[in-house]
């Protein structure tokens, strides 16, 4: 009986630990950056990409689930935010008609923040983007 109790206690504790690690996937550094990034998202991005990141079919690509958004090519992401996008490119099997705004006035920290927000919101999960990385990327963008 004692053994059973002990076992169930371990199960409860371990499941609590598992669920804790599952729900608390966002590290504090990312969380703070995401909170700042959300404010920028609502001002600059939401009109086209929608509050839930689902985009607009055939006009504005979704960010939720987008391979580029979740991917490791941070230079590409920084370039898109700074320069906007007007190319006819296929994105995850679909084409989108609208041009994306250029945002050269956003600071390195603001770009890192909005990237952390879109890379870790909805169904997305990705590594932290730092202002230092954005600064380095910006020098490569003409």
């Amino acid at each position: 009986m004692k053994y059973v109790y002990c076992l169930s206690l371990i199960l409860v504790l371990s499941s609590a630990l598992v669920s804790r690690s599952a729900t608390n996937t966002v590290q504090p550094a990312i969380k703070a950056s995401m909170d700042r990034g959300k404010i920028i998202y609502l001002q600059r991005c939401m009109a086209c990409h929608q509050a839930d990141g689902s985009g607009v079919p055939r006009l504005n690509p979704p960010l939720d689930g987008a391979s580029t958004v979740k991917g490791n090519d941070k230079l590409k992401l920084v370039r898109i935010i700074i320069k906007g996008m007007t190319d006819r490119v296929e994105i995850d099997g679909e084409y989108y008609d609208n041009n994306m705004s250029a945002n050269p006035d956003l600071t390195d920290t603001q770009i890192a923040d909005v990237l952390n927000y879109i890379r870790n919101s909805w169904g997305n999960k990705a590594s932290l983007v730092t202002a230092v990385e954005v600064k380095a990327a910006r020098t490569k963008i003409k």
Partner: peptide, 13 residues
Amino acid sequence: PSNSCQEVDRTKG
């Protein structure tokens, strides 16, 4: 092919 004929389409400022 433009929102409002800005120099850079759909861009603040």
